[in-house]
Structures are given as structure tokens and as C-alpha cells.
């Protein structure tokens, strides 16, 4: 098991190397001079040139890249040009809100989607099934920012149940923390729920037709046991895959919803860094996001082994 994890961690290195090169290149090939942006419109050419050499921006690209890479390998992702805090610190500060929203969105999605998906599978072809499929198609198609705006209009502006936007950390109290998270989590989780419900339905439909389900019924088990114990456990692998993949997306790609709801998360960090040409932050954050994403995938793969003993065996043999 630990050997497997180690192997997986090592296999992350090439991925990270590619991401590092790509991120570095893209940032430097886009127009806009960070020194000019930082000093503002009134700065003279001389001042800009001074700042450029101070930041090392006047060195050749390859040299800049190797300097940066050497620092990264020592755990130093550089400092923000703009706020002068270490990139890792900025990342950690912004990770909290993002993770909070993502976890709440995921919980909402799972709690809604799995029972609904199972219900649709058991009532295949009925009105309920068609309604679930229809709503989930809607959920996949509607962009989360649009849904977010509608949610704000309804629950914050009209009904005044929840705040319009913003973020309060957990230290300000659980309910206060959650109050601000509910709407963004709903906006993000709806699409998640749609994806998970569809996967649950199709996966359950496959499993329900399997022979061991008939065996379970022939044993005299109650239908709820047959479905929620025998069928669901088997249907979990594809469902888990969808959850894992999309959870990575929630953590790393909630930029739009974070902007709509004004949540100081990773998405906002990236967007504002791009606006400020804050190269170090963009590079470091994208790299750390990649690490997070790959680690999440690893966790999902390890969960497979817990759900399905056959996966465990294969690993022993490998």
C-alpha cells in the first residue's frame, strides 16, 4: 500500500514539470509588464527599468525559469510583487474559503444526487425518472454564475434570508460561516448534483440487472437492503470517480462563483494576480492547484480500494 502511494507520488513529478514549464511560458508570453503595472501610469522609463532588474525580469527567460525552478524545489515559490507576502502564504490564506465552499457544495450535491439517482433508476421510464433526467440536464447546462445570480436575487434580495455576498471565516461562528457559504455552495453544487445523479442512475441501472442482486432478493432481503447495501456499494466506483473528478474542479476552478459571491478564495487570488501581472503568484498558485488536484485523484483511487476488494487484490499483485 505505502509502496503504491509512493509510486503514485513519484508519477506526479513529470506532470508537475510540464505544468511548471507551461505556466511559466504562458505568463511570460502574455503582453503587459509587471513593473509598469506595479508602478502605475505615472512611472518613468528609468524607474520601470530599475524595478525590472530588481525583480530579475531583465534576465533571459531560460535563466529566469531556472532561478524560479531552483527556488521551487527548495519550497520557495517566491513573493508576490504586489503584496510582498510569500506565495505559499497567500495560497494558504485563500485556500480556506475555497475548500469551505467546495466541501459544502459537495455535501449538498451528494445528499441530493445519490438518493435522486437511485430513485430514477428504480422507476426507470416513469415520470419521476424523466423529471430527474430533465432537471439534471438543466443543471449541467446552466452556468454556475447565472444560477448564482438568480439565487442571490431570490434568497438574498427578495426573501432576505441570506447575505448577498462575502465571506466570514469559521472563527466567526459556525452559523455565520455557513450563512455566507450556502448560496455559493448551491450554485456550485447544483451542477455537481446533476452529474452525480446521472451517474448514479446509469450505474444503478447496470447493477440492478446483475445476478447477485437477484441472489440478494432470493435470500429474502428487504428491497431497501438490496438497493442500499448490495447495489449501491457496487455502483459506488463510477459515482466515486465523478465525485473525485468534480471535487478537484470545485477546489481549483470555482473562480467564477467566487467572483460572483465575492469570496476571497483561490479563484479570486488567481484573477487578481492576473490583473496585476503578479507572475510569482500565478505560477505558484497554478502549480499548487495542480498538486492539490493530483493528490485528490490519488485519494479517490485509494477510496476505490476501500469500496471494492477486487481493486485491493490487483494492487497487491502489481
Amino acid at each position: 500500500m505505502s509502496g503504491y502511494i509512493l509510486k503514485r507520488l513519484l508519477s506526479m513529478l513529470p506532470i508537475l514539470a510540464v505544468v511548471a514549464v507551461v505556466v511559466f511560458m504562458i505568463v511570460h508570453l502574455t503582453p503587459g509588464d509587471p513593473a509598469a503595472v506595479m508602478l502605475g501610469d505615472e512611472a518613468g522609463e528609468k524607474e520601470i527599468a530599475e524595478l525590472r532588474s530588481q525583480l530579475g525580469l531583465d534576465l533571459p527567460l531560460a535563466v529566469q525559469f531556472f532561478h524560479w525552478l531552483a527556488n521551487v524545489l527548495q519550497g520557495d515559490l517566491g513573493r508576490s510583487y504586489f503584496s510582498d507576502v510569500p506565495v505559499t502564504q497567500a495560497f494558504w490564506e485563500h485556500l480556506g474559503p475555497t475548500v469551505s465552499v467546495a466541501i459544502l457544495a459537495q455535501i449538498i450535491a451528494i445528499l441530493i444526487a445519490i438518493p435522486i439517482g437511485i430513485m430514477a433508476a428504480r422507476r426507470r421510464g416513469t415520470m419521476i425518472d424523466q423529471a430527474v433526467m430533465g432537471v439534471s440536464l438543466f443543471g449541467i447546462s446552466v452556468p454556475s454564475f447565472l444560477l448564482g445570480l438568480f439565487l442571490i436575487l431570490l434568497f438574498a434580495v427578495q426573501l432576505k434570508w441570506l447575505p448577498v455576498a462575502g465571506y466570514k471565516p469559521l472563527s466567526s461562528g459556525l452559523w455565520n460561516h455557513l450563512r455566507y457559504l450556502i448560496l455559493p455552495a448551491l450554485a456550485l453544487g447544483f451542477m455537481q448534483a446533476a452529474l452525480i445523479a446521472r451517474m448514479t442512475r446509469s450505474s444503478m441501472l447496470d447493477i440492478i440487472a446483475d445476478n447477485y442482486i437477484k441472489t440478494a432478493r432470493a435470500k429474502g432481503l428487504k428491497e431497501t437492503m438490496v438497493i442500499y447495501k448490495h447495489a449501491l456499494r457496487n455502483a459506488c466506483i463510477p459515482i466515486l470517480t465523478v465525485i473525485g473528478e468534480t471535487f478537484g474542479g470545485l477546489v481549483t476552478g470555482a473562480a467564477v462563483v467566487e467572483t460572483v459571491f465575492n469570496i476571497p478564495g483561490i479563484g479570486q487570488l488567481i484573477i487578481s494576480s492576473v490583473e496585476r501581472r503578479d507572475y510569482a503568484v500565478i505560477q505558484g498558485t497554478v502549480l499548487l492547484i495542480t498538486v492539490t488536484y493530483v493528490l485528490l485523484n490519488l485519494i479517490v483511487d485509494l477510496l476505490y480500494g476501500i469500496v471494492d476488494p477486487r481493486v485491493r487484490l490487483n494492487r497487491k499483485e502489481r
Binding site: 446483475d210 445476478n211 447477485y212 437477484k214 441472489t215 440478494a216 432470493a218 448490495h230 456499494r233 457496487n234 469500496v307 471494492d308 476488494p309 477486487r310
Partner: peptide
């Protein structure tokens, strides 16, 4: 008892 013992037992228990 069913025909195919390969598929008649639940693989995850």
C-alpha cells in the same frame, strides 16, 4: 441457486 457462481455472489462482500 443460480447458474453462474461467478456473477451470483456480490463481489464487494
Amino acid at each position: 441457486i443460480f447458474q453462474d457462481p461467478m456473477t451470483s455472489l456480490n463481489p464487494v462482500f
